[in-house]
């Protein structure tokens, strides 16, 4: 195993050389590339990457350009994870036979949006985790199919207005709650699953490096604030992410070996969920009198979840 890159503080981290290039076509202020940068810069090892169809893939591989300075592959919407799993199996086989030209162990990472992980690629990811490949699956969770114009995915939270679940006179938008993907992946017996956010970079780097360190399939759910579909100004990406983590709408925690849950970030001042909702255009309709009860329900749901996480951490199960 190669050495873990030492990152004590941001100044030291800033000496990293990016392996993800500019002039990609992601929207200004997109959190996707902040996440990708933090993942790629967490290690100095070679990387074998894939991206499932989604914003990240269509924006970074527009013919005749590529924005990736590492081996990168795209195949289909659903099988980004299996492409990397296949590469990992190949690497292992060649290594066992002593036929590797270079004696270096790369890191295997597949990127996918929430659509390609929660819905379309779910079966494939489940397969990779069941077979126990030594890889990492990073979900760029923007809670909507942003690439195709904002259709709801099973990650879209209640009350959000998406193009296939629009808010109006009769409906308040999306009616199903977000899928608890972390619990599902932890139940696969994965050695490490974690929920991270790019605005808490230190927390995120720690999670990623831990994920690289352990052997086996690692699942990382990274919140990616989407300026286009969440409807906020591009410069507010970090502010909105801060609101999401501080209001506990997006709690940061990890589950080790499918059983031990740790909360990795506890906000000093918990912000009411209302502030998080008010900052985004997709929840604008919730502030009409007829839908105001939903904000109260949101708060209750978030409190309940936080309470549940704390109880699990305390009991260390």
């Amino acid at each position: 195993m190669s050495e873990i890159k030492k990152i004590k503080n941001l100044k030291e981290f800033s000496t990293s050389a990016d392996r993800f290039e500019g002039a990609n076509l992601l929207c200004p202020g997109c959190a996707h590339s902040i996440i990708v940068r933090e993942v790629l810069n967490a290690t100095n090892d070679d990387m074998i990457l894939s991206a499932a169809t989604g914003c990240l893939e269509v924006c970074t591989a527009v013919y005749p350009y590529t924005s990736w300075d590492a081996s990168w592959i795209h195949i289909g919407f659903e099988n980004g994870s299996t492409a990397v799993a296949g590469a990992e199996a190949m690497h292992k086989a060649l290594k066992n036979k002593g036929r590797l030209k270079q004696d270096r162990d790369p890191k295997f990472v597949s990127f996918a949006g929430d659509g390609a992980s929660y819905d379309i690629g779910f079966q494939w990811i489940s397969g990779c985790f069941e077979r126990g490949h030594d890889m990492m699956h990073v979900v760029l969770d923007n809670e909507v199919y942003a690439n195709t114009g904002g259709q709801r995915s099973s990650s879209t939270p209640i009350g959000s207005s998406a193009t296939t679940s629009p808010a109006g006179r009769i409906s308040y938008g999306e009616k199903q709650n977000k899928k608890d993907m972390l619990a599902i992946m932890a139940a696969h017996g994965s050695p490490y699953v974690a929920q991270v956010a790019p605005n808490k970079w230190k927390n995120m780097i720690k999670a990623i490096q831990h994920g690289f360190e352990v052997e086996g399939p690692v699942f990382i759910n990274a919140m990616s604030a989407c300026t286009t579909e969440w409807k906020f100004a591009p410069e507010d990406t970090i502010a909105i992410s801060d609101l999401a983590t501080d209001s506990l709408v997006f709690p940061l925690y990890e589950i080790i070996n499918g059983e031990k849950l740790n909360i990795t970030y506890r906000p000093k001042n918990v912000v009411p969920v209302e502030e998080y909702l008010a900052a985004q255009g997709r929840f604008k309709h919730l502030f009409k009198d007829q839908y105001k009860y939903l904000i109260k329900e949101w708060q209750e749901r978030v409190d309940q979840k936080w309470d549940y996480l704390q109880r699990r951490e305390e009991a260390s199960v």
């Binding site: 941001l10 100044k11 500019g22 200004p28 902040i34 940068r37």
Partner: peptide
């Protein structure tokens, strides 16, 4: 003050 917040949060490696 070289805090590097702009570096880590820049989405375009700029």
């Amino acid at each position: 003050i070289d805090c590097q917040f702009c570096w880590i949060y820049c989405p375009d490696m700029s």
